[in-house]
Amino acid sequence: MASQSSLQVGQSYRGALLRGIFADSLTVFWGDWLDLRVRLPQVVASGLVSPLIYILGFGLGLGSAMQIQPPIGNSYLEFILPGMVALSSMTIGFGGTTFSICGERLYSKTFEEILLLPVHPLSLFLGKMLAGVVRGLMTSGSVLLIAVLFTRNFAFLHPLFLLLLVLNCAVFSGLGVIVGLNVKSLEGVGLLNNFLIVPMSFLGATFFDPATLPIALKAIVYLLPLTYTSIGLRAIVFQSLSEFPWYSIPILLIIAVVLSAIGAYQFAHQQD
């Protein structure tokens, strides 16, 4: 009886802890949302520039001029549109989150107030990550609208498509939180962006089908989280569910969980 009672107490404690972490995460997120909502047009517009340039330059320009026949889809423009949605969510999810935390740490000096909050470190990470997810969804939602208007294909609004998009936002927002906690200057952010995000924009299966690559290059491409999002989104739009790469969901989920553990540890030991 004593062991059963101890087990029930332990379960009740864990349940209360998880509810507390969730509630505190929403509180941290709400603080960021109050600042974010007054800058919605800038946030949405900032993440639209690169995808629109790629759509015009590669989809309508290069694809039409060279008459590229993609593996799936009716045109090269249609082929790259799911990748452009993934690209926009990655860019603003990472960049917006990183610059937001850097601004609080290095310029406004308000980040210490966040560290003093009597909440679990995981709540701090999740709250910041949720704000990044919202940023990514707002920007990618605009690209999504463009994709639907171009193709008249409502598979872009499939629940599985939206699930993958949220997971992609979570991965790169989580990465943005960790980078924001560690960089020492905005120059460091630019350096990491040039060596991490920009190469991934072109190598993350956004403009090509990784199945056609040689083994050595394929191994590199499949190390990138964006690859799993791009091929998954493309499969949802142009293929049947039986051909969907189901492994992409657990891979992105595992990466998000690992980043959460790292971010919580970082918040617990952060000193600014």
Rank of each mutant, 00 (worst) to 15 (best):
G20A: 12
E112K: 10
L36W: 09
N182R: 11
A155Y: 05
S88D: 07
F207C: 10
L126W: 07
V133C: 11
G15D: 15
L224H: 05
T139K: 04
L149H: 09
V43D: 02
Q8S: 12
L130Y: 11
L87F: 09
A264E: 01
V43G: 01
D272S: 15
F111I: 07
P214A: 00
P159F: 06
P71A: 12
L124H: 05
P70H: 06
F99G: 10
F154Y: 10
F58C: 03
V9H: 14
A264T: 01
F22V: 05
S5D: 15
G95K: 08
R135E: 04
E113K: 00
T151I: 04
G63A: 06
D35V: 04
A268W: 06
I72E: 13
S123C: 02
T97A: 03
L18F: 06
F244D: 13
S142N: 10
L18N: 10
S173L: 02
S88F: 08
S25P: 14
F22E: 05
F150L: 09
V143F: 11
L192N: 07
P214M: 07
G263E: 04
V198G: 03
G83K: 00
N168C: 14
S46C: 02
I255C: 04
G47V: 08
T98E: 09
L52S: 04
M138N: 11
L203D: 02
M90N: 05
S230P: 00
N153M: 08
F207E: 07
V166L: 13
V134T: 12
G141Y: 01
P70F: 07
A216T: 09
P41F: 08
C169F: 03
G20Y: 09
Q239S: 11
L191D: 10
Y13F: 13
S140F: 12
L226P: 09
L224S: 00
V134E: 08
C102S: 15
A211F: 04
M90Y: 02
N168S: 15
A256F: 11
I178H: 06
I215M: 12
P118I: 13
A205S: 15
L106H: 08
L126C: 10
I80F: 04
W246R: 13
M138R: 10
Q271I: 13
V28G: 06
S140W: 14
V49L: 12
Y265E: 08
I236C: 00
I55G: 00
F267I: 06
Q11F: 13
L7P: 02
L224D: 01
T98I: 10
Q4W: 13
S88W: 04
V134N: 08
L36I: 12
V143P: 11
N74L: 03
R39H: 10
F150T: 07
T97V: 05
L62V: 12
G96H: 12
C169H: 00
R19F: 07
V198I: 14
V257A: 14
V9E: 14
L62S: 07
W33F: 15
Y228N: 01
C102W: 07
T91A: 08
I220A: 13
P245E: 09
V221I: 10
L253D: 02
V189Y: 05
A86I: 03
L167F: 14
E78H: 06
S75H: 03
L48R: 04
G10W: 11
M66V: 14
S248G: 06
T206E: 11
P159A: 04
P82S: 01
I251P: 05
V166H: 07
G232S: 03
Q270F: 12
G176P: 03
